[in-house]
């Protein structure tokens, strides 16, 4: 299997003007239409969250009168803040750990030369190709063995490495390796000349330069784990440790679903994601520019 080459050759990136067919306003018009298409479910969701239960079953998009009380009711039916905090903290830990361990591993795979390196890398890659579903039971047994079922630790550790719902560490390593391959060798060689240790080179040179990759991976991991449903569902027993997607099941009942409350809860659960995305997105763009200047 041939190795894949640089993902993103760094280069000075000045404002580019690739002449396009869409001129200014036309382009913006098109983007608006496309954006609307993308907003559609979101808009529907927000509108549905303002309906009464009976209205939620009807085709009309608009509620007859906005039921803002639905949002308050969510807090009465489920401990929303508790679930939300659980979700955020768990997804945060998984993201931090996965990004960090993947970056270390990717550095080793992309920049260091040691016997058996490529073979081990392809083993990493290969593990992504087995459906995560069949890994659930063995992982659960391992958790049972170490008494980590129904604990926060059990929700954080396995997803860092294994693809239980969201992509696992193998994907992170793959992604960051692709980014690191694109950083010119001259940079770390120069650092080595200055007598920097491998750790220094990783921490001070390579990691900052692979910022776009790191931020991209952080976005993917956070989003994926914030939404992760199956693993927390199977693992948890104590209600106070539930994550949001599992907690949303509280709106289901034998005789139907409280769609209006569910939609209000989902709407609220999306807000932190949007904030985090906007923040990280800025990092993504800044990162690319910084990296380019240094390169």
């Amino acid at each position: 299997m041939p190795t894949t080459e640089p993902a993103s050759p760094p280069a000075p990136s000045a404002p580019v003007r690739p002449p396009g067919r869409f001129d200014g306003l036309g382009l913006h018009g098109l983007m608006t239409v496309l954006s609307l298409l993308m907003i559609l479910p979101f808009a529907w969701m927000v509108l549905a969250s303002l309906k009464t239960l009976a209205e939620a079953g009807e085709p009309a998009w608009l509620p007859k009168a906005a039921q803002w009380g639905n949002y308050l009711e969510v807090f009465q039916v489920i401990p929303f803040l508790r679930f939300g905090a659980n979700s955020l903290v768990i997804a945060g830990w998984v993201t931090l750990l996965q990004v960090f361990t993947s970056a270390l591993a990717a550095y080793s795979f992309a920049r260091l030369e040691w016997p058996g390196r490529d073979r081990l890398f392809f083993l990493y890659l290969g593990t992504m190709m087995l459906p995560g579903l069949v890994m659930v039971i063995p992982n659960f047994q391992i958790m049972m063995h170490y008494r980590m079922v129904d604990s926060y630790l059990g929700l954080v550790l396995p997803p860092v490495y294994s693809a239980l719902g969201a992509a696992g560490g193998a994907f992170g390593t793959f992604l960051l390796r692709q980014f690191m391959l694109g950083i010119p060798r001259a940079l770390d060689e120069a650092a080595e000349m200055d007598g920097a240790s491998k750790w220094r080179i990783f921490w001070d040179v390579i990691l900052p330069l692979s910022r776009p990759g790191v931020v991209t991976l952080a976005i993917f991991t956070f989003m994926g784990n914030y939404h992760s449903f199956f693993w927390p569902l199977v693992m948890m027993k104590t209600v106070d440790k539930y994550t949001l997607p599992v907690g949303l099941l509280f709106f289901d009942s034998e005789h139907g679903q409280a769609t209006h409350l569910l939609m209000a809860a989902v709407t609220m659960s999306v807000l932190p994601l949007i904030l985090i995305f906007v923040f990280l997105q800025r990092q993504l763009i800044r990162g690319i520019q910084l990296g380019a200047v240094k390169g």
């Binding site: 361990t101 080793s108 593990t127 087995l130 890994m135 992982n139 490495y161 560490g169």
Partner: peptide, 21 residues
């Protein structure tokens, strides 16, 4: 050296991916 960088990743990888695999 290579392994030292890989260690945090490969420990978890073995426990939560390779063994179940």
């Amino acid at each position: 050296t290579g392994m030292a960088f890989l260690l945090p990743s490969i420990l978890g990888f073995c426990a939560f991916t390779l063994v179940p695999l």
